[in-house]
Design a protein around this nucleic acid. Structure first.
Lengths: 229, 229
DNA sequence: TCTTGTTAGATTGTCGACAATCTGCTTGTC
DNA sequence: GACAAGCAGATTGTCGACAATCTAACAAGA
């Protein structure tokens, strides 16, 4: 009999679906930073009672994309330039570590998956679907974390990714120009297939710094607008 | 008029208190790994309804010390040897990064706080209060993260600390012998006051590895006992 | 005019009850 | 005796209502 792997069945609780809905709304920028989440209004819109909604919100608070003030409300986290800097500098460190751990684990399945995700990025780029472009790029990026075989590291990166995705979405949304169609991941993929680990680590840093400049400019804009308070 | 800083007022929601109670119970080992948390029973014991209790549990699930299976229950996370290895290896990386960031930020207040926390450890050691000993040691350790001025890094470390504290508590609980009374932090503190950053980073790694060996032995014991399933 | 007290409305926090789901046992059938 | 169906019992998930708290507008007094 052939060995068959079943994937976990879908979460069947409203709570889990609400979490997914809210997270998506936040990470795509439909819910902007600082915006308040009115429990009654949202629960009515979703045709759900406040109990599972509130539980879902608690999860997202711990996930770091919502913040809660007792008796005042729950809000989408504010994004400051420093937050972005902090997230990115940590991401660099984690990247280096992840590559180091994943390096000896690379196998055929790794390379196949690498190509698959790379193609997904290219496809989203061609389709000019910016949201999906961000998603796929982060998934490509996350491969080394999945292969690093360190659950705590993976979990940490996934948390960080939530924020990065949010930052990128805000950035994309802010500038109306279409996203560059060129593929910036070609070198990264090639290096991960190669034999020079140090080179891969170095490139991960530099590649990140690339988009970083743009993102920072956007963040500084946010800073200024924050003075409107 | 003298400048006066007020600290934020205490959380006044039941939820927050429940979170604190549960976290403490788990981190001190009163609630062991794999143990199920019966909502009705706990809510009755705490004289609280299930709503805030469940919200509190959602937070702790996201914090990584509880795990939830829909319609089955919420349990204290299982601890495997690999979890401990993973947490520690990540901790090393984060430590190096934190020291690097905190290094130029060191000032008189840093040194004062360093001594204060170091004394707290020594006092707990003299009093043979193992729980407090773990707490204070982690707080001493956390100083570099607080001074690193990177909110994402600090948050990440605090999550990691939850687990480390849990692991240590389990370890301490497992062995009945009293904790060594000698002070293993003397060198660490001295190095943080010194001028050689690399040396401090190196020592952080080695110092961690010290307790690590013991902890790992305990973890492997857990592994074996897990076969009782 | 500025400050302080009051009040109404809205929103969050909490509660008790009901619905959905799981687990283990019993029952019946072969 | 083995095995599937079905039935309690317990537990989690969800709901609607009530209590506690905050906010903002307004009134009263210095």
């Amino acid at each position: 009999m052939a060995k068959l792997d079943f994937s976990p069945i879908a979460d069947t609780t409203r709570r889990a679906e609400i979490v997914a809905l809210l997270r998506r709304a936040i990470l795509t920028g439909q819910l902007g930073p600082g915006q308040k989440l009115n429990e009654l209004r949202i629960s009515e819109q979703m045709r759900v009672s406040r109990a599972p909604l509130r539980e879902a919100m608690r999860e997202l608070v711990q996930e770091g994309i919502l913040t809660s003030i007792p008796y005042a409300g729950t809000f989408v986290v504010d994004v400051t330039a420093k937050d972005i800097i902090d997230a990115y500098s940590l991401n660099k460190v984690l990247d280096e570590f992840a590559i180091e751990l994943a390096w000896p684990q690379r196998d055929q399945r790794f390379f196949d998956e690498l190509d698959r995700r790379h193609n997904a990025v290219k496809q989203a780029t061609r389709a000019v679907d910016t949201t999906r472009q961000i998603e796929t790029a982060l998934q490509l990026h996350g491969l080394i974390y999945e292969w690093a075989d360190n659950s705590v590291l993976l979990e940490t990166w996934q948390r960080l990714t939530s924020r990065l995705q949010m930052y990128f979405a805000l950035h994309q949304r802010a500038r109306n120009e279409p996203v560059p169609a060129e593929d910036v991941h070609e070198t990264y993929v090639a290096l991960l297939k190669g034999a020079d680990m140090r080179a891969a680590q170095r490139h991960a840093r530099e590649h990140i710094d690339l988009d970083f400049e743009e993102l920072l400019a956007y963040a500084r804009g946010l800073e200024k607008r924050a003075s409107k308070n």
